[in-house]
């Protein structure tokens, strides 16, 4: 699965640590999400969508 997490984070000038704090996960998890090493659960995907105020489908897409 692809995602636009890194782009969205950069647009807001947030660090990985800051985004991790907002999502309630570790910085390593944010890094793994951004590099495509980990696909989030549905609850975390919804949380990401809420944090960026965007629909899930505009953040995540199929390969």
């Amino acid at each position: 699965m692809n995602n636009r997490l890194k782009v969205l984070r950069a647009e807001r000038d947030w660090s990985q640590a800051h985004l991790a704090e907002l999502l309630g996960v570790s910085r390593q998890t944010v890094n793994a999400l951004e590099t495509g090493r980990y696909d989030p659960s549905l609850p975390l995907a919804f949380k990401i969508a809420r944090v960026f105020d965007q629909p899930i489908e505009s953040i995540f897409s199929e390969d």
Partner: peptide
Amino acid sequence: MSTSVDYK
């Protein structure tokens, strides 16, 4: 509150 600096 936000920062773009990642710790290294």
